Amino acid sequence: MKFSVFTASTPEWTPQEAATELAAQGWDGVEWRVTDQADSPEPGFWAGNKATWPMTGLEDSLPEIARITAEAGLEYSGLGGYARCDNHDDVERVLAATAALGARQVRVNVLPLGNSTMGGGEPSGLSYPELFAATREHYEWVAARAAHHGVKALVELHHGTVTASASSARRLLEGLDPRHVGVIHDLGNLLIEGWESPLPALELLGPYLSHIHVKNARWVQATERDESGAAVWVNEWAPLAEGQGSVLAYFKALAQVGYDDWVTVEDFSTDVPLAGRTAGNLQYLRRVAVLAGLSVPAGADLSAGSIPKG
């Protein structure tokens, strides 16, 4: 098993700093965030993130991405793209960039739900059947273009989209070539929407299980109540060892289905400063992988001293 970090979760570091620090900590790879983002006076996960490569002018950035990654001795677990499947021009560009870098796979976003504001847009108001059918049509085109470039386009299980669950993603991709389309199974996102017991969900995905994202979340009761007087619960991100999802049980399920490939961490908790958070996460994940019967590099640090906690 190999471990990487998605740079959406390292907003305070420039790409050079991220690559240097992650390599020094012992990470195997990096998953670069690629998107145009809003400016922010302070670095944030979604705006002002210093470790993000802009979509505008991406092609001109490819030599620098390749240089920074290679000089740090890191591999690509893939690219963290934000191009939506209905934006064919941008999808074509990220597929071509993935091929040029040798990054193998890239996330291509599905359509959001009709009542969702994901991506900053206004809700479309369209029904789920309409959106699902449109996403399937676009993904048939995406699959063909991914095959042309010799790479794989990844559907992420994500709340607020037409593929919040493994079941919906399998239905979306059924019949498409799993060599060129696949699924990112994401423990943290599924705690918010789309939860299915990990083992049967992973078994259901079968050949479409292509990548793993790990983060954790928890539900907390809000101070206000709804109009009926009932409690209101909201979700928040949590350190890996402190959320409601069991990373150990998750890794045991991965072992049972024979998954022993990339696991990418995107820890959006802020309880621990960034450097300590990433270093501690790597130690924790390596130890959990061993407990689950998965492989880790020989000589990896499996000590318990730096698990990020709340």
Rank of each mutant, 00 (worst) to 15 (best):
V5Q: 05
F6P: 00
S9P: 08
T10H: 00
W13V: 05
T14P: 05
T14Y: 08
P15I: 10
Q16S: 15
T20W: 03
T20I: 10
W27L: 13
W32I: 11
T35S: 13
T35G: 07
D36M: 07
D36C: 10
A38P: 07
D39L: 12
S40I: 04
E42G: 01
K50S: 08
W53N: 04
M55N: 03
T56G: 12
L58H: 06
L58F: 09
T69A: 05
L79F: 06
G80V: 05
Y82T: 06
A83M: 05
C85E: 00
D89E: 15
D90G: 00
D90V: 06
E92A: 14
V94S: 04
V94A: 06
L101F: 10
R104D: 14
R104A: 15
Q105A: 06
V106W: 00
V108R: 04
N109I: 01
V110K: 03
L111G: 02
L111V: 04
L111Q: 02
L113D: 01
L113Q: 10
G114C: 07
N115R: 03
G121V: 10
G121Y: 03
E122I: 07
L126H: 04
E130R: 09
F132V: 14
F132D: 04
A133E: 15
T135L: 06
E137L: 05
E137Q: 14
Y139S: 02
E140M: 04
W141V: 14
V142Y: 08
A144G: 13
A144E: 15
R145E: 12
A146D: 11
H148Y: 12
H149C: 12
V155D: 02
V155L: 06
L157W: 04
L157Q: 12
H158M: 12
H158C: 08
A164T: 06
S165G: 12
L172I: 06
E174P: 01
E174R: 11
L176D: 10
L176H: 10
R179W: 00
H180F: 11
V181R: 00
G182P: 09
V183K: 03
I184E: 03
N189T: 04
L190Q: 13
L190T: 09
E193A: 14
E196A: 12
A201P: 10
L202T: 07
L204Q: 13
P207Y: 00
Y208L: 11
H213T: 03
H213E: 08
K215V: 08
N216S: 09
R218V: 12
R218N: 08
T223G: 13
E224T: 12
R225T: 15
G229D: 13
N235P: 00
N235K: 02
N235G: 15
A238V: 02
L240V: 03
A241H: 07
E242T: 08
Q244Y: 08
A253S: 15
Q256N: 09
V257T: 05
G258V: 03
Y259D: 08
W262A: 01
T264I: 07
D267V: 03
F268V: 01
S269P: 07
T270M: 11
L274Y: 01
A275P: 00
G276T: 09
N281P: 01
R287S: 13
A292P: 11
L294C: 10
V296D: 07
G299C: 07
A300I: 03
A300C: 09
L302C: 11
A304S: 13
A304Y: 07
K309D: 03
K309Q: 12
G310V: 10
